[in-house]
Design a protein around this nucleic acid. Structure first.
Length: 423
RNA sequence: GUGGGCGUAGCUCAAUGGGUAGAGCUCCGGGUUGUGAUCCCGGGGGUUGCGGGUUCGAGUCCCGUCGUCCACCCCA
């Protein structure tokens, strides 16, 4: 038996990095006072066909759909924004109020697997509702920059920025684009020809030279964009300039989900081959209404954890912090209970240290080897001699200092001071 | 979804032109009483991803399948 295609097991060594990175990210979101929600993995399929767009690749060919016992179509969520909006609408949290929210968890898309692209993958998302101005767009981008800084990967990532205008302007431009391309359909590459009726804006970032040269003469969005959107975009850029957040304007940046309008942005990297999008988002002022609520402006982003982790590893190396701080060796099997009781007191006194008590007996030599192998800084010895005096032996495995024999209180004090400078 | 590369021990990899699978690391034991990582000695471990086919004989050639990686595509 093996895991399904595209489903990955995260084993202890890797999970240690996940915990570190996830905690660092969520800490940033916390410090910006974004509150957490936890959302279901299953939703009505209609939430996504309406929210994301029925003509998008995500819905059209990547969604894991199934039917429940009543025959209703349900789906594993392919992304988080639609669920988040649905949840907040359902519980009235968007009624005459603004919200700043984050969530995280697995998403599912049935794509052909690749490094940094799995069928179950994990995102951390942040969304802000009820605020129309570019200030909150800038805040979300600033938050992203802060996340990369905290993770030490800011040197690997660059920000791309664009505006899609309001949905009316975009629809007008889209219509002009289709009118321009339709007579020239024969010169388009196959994929682009297929997109012409369903999702023409995606033709813009086609990689085919023939298509690209055709686009050089195509109607320009600059002639269609509305003034409010221009002002919004200019305002956002001014704020980012003031915050010192560097960006590259990319007029071809078109998010693959229908719900975006105005601001769209993407944090990309060169180090992950074709899977260069680490984090992306934008404004989606129309989404709440599409889902069946009153109109509520929204803007947000989602970052891909696997890709962030790959970058983190590329920058910081493969080493993960050891899982154990103190490995406790029990020399005589009859002292196991005493040792376990004593370590309970140590865990109480030293909540930041991780104690592992040897189990299964065996010679001290082997127990010491286990202590070394798990990466523990200290070995703690429960032997006849030490226990007779109600003390324990402490050996520093990473420094050439003499072994000490200490009572409980002295040991707690000793590990507390040493524990500080080791972390 | 399309095209291609790869799949041999827990891990990283060998195996001449088809001739019944090997190394390093890991792991286990030993080097005399209660001290790890080094050193020495010994040991365990594989239905060569899976299923067919060709052949006297297949890890090696062919087909299928599963998985993975790369590009396309898509996206976070």
């Amino acid at each position: 038996m093996q895991a399904l295609r595209g489903m990955r097991d995260v084993l202890p060594e890797e999970a240690r990095r996940w915990r570190m990175v996830e905690r660092a990210i969520v800490d940033v979101l916390d410090r910006f006072a974004y509150e957490e929600v936890r959302l279901p993995l299953l939703e009505a399929a209609e939430l996504f066909t309406r929210g994301i767009g029925a003509a998008t690749d995500i819905v059209e060919k990547e969604m894991f759909g199934l039917s429940d016992r009543d025959g209703d179509s349900i789906a594993l969520r392919p992304e988080g924004t639609a669920s988040c909006v649905r949840a907040l609408l359902q519980h009235g949290l968007l009624h005459n109020q603004s919200q700043r929210i984050h969530y995280r968890g697995p998403m599912f898309r049935s794509e052909r697997p690749q490094l940094g692209r799995h069928r179950q993958f994990h995102q951390v998302g942040a969304e802000a509702f009820g605020m129309v101005g570019p200030d909150v767009d800038a805040e979300l981008i600033q938050m992203g920059a802060e996340i990369w800084r905290v993770l030490g990967i800011e040197g690997e990532i660059q920000l791309e920025l664009n505006t899609l205008g309001c949905s009316e302007a975009r629809a007008a431009w889209r219509g002009a684009l289709v009118r321009y391309l339709r007579p020239r359909q024969g010169d388009l590459d196959g994929d682009s020809a297929k997109r012409l009726e369903r999702n023409p804006l995606r033709i813009l970032d086609s990689k085919f030279p023939a298509t690209r040269s055709l686009l050089a003469e195509a109607p320009k969005f600059a002639d269609y964009i509305d003034d409010d959107s221009v002002r919004h975009y200019e305002g956002l850029k001014r704020l980012l300039d003031g915050l010192g957040v560097a960006y590259v304007e990319n007029p071809l940046l078109v998010r693959g989900l229908d719900y975006y309008s105005r601001t769209v942005f993407e944090w990309t990297t060169e180090r992950l081959g074709a899977q260069g999008a680490v984090c992306a988002g934008g404004r989606y002022d129309g989404l709440a209404e599409i889902i069946g609520g009153k109109p509520v402006p929204g803007v947000g982003f989602a970052l891909g954890l696997e890709r962030t982790l790959l970058l983190h590893e590329a920058v910081h190396g493969a080493g993960a912090p050891p899982p154990v701080d103190v490995y406790c060796c029990v020399l005589q099997p009859e002292h196991q209970g005493v040792a376990m009781a004593r370590v309970r007191a140590l865990r109480d006194g030293l909540p930041n240290l991780r104690f592992r008590v040897h189990a299964g007996g065996g010679r001290l030599k082997n127990q010491m080897r286990r202590a070394d192998q798990c990466g523990a800084r200290w070995a703690l010895l429960f032997g006849e001699d030490e226990l007779r005096e109600n003390r324990m032996g402490l050996k520093d495995l990473r420094n050439e200092t003499p072994q000490e024999t200490l009572g409980l209180a002295a040991l707690v004090e000793r590990l507390r001071t040493a524990g500080m400078d080791s972390t």
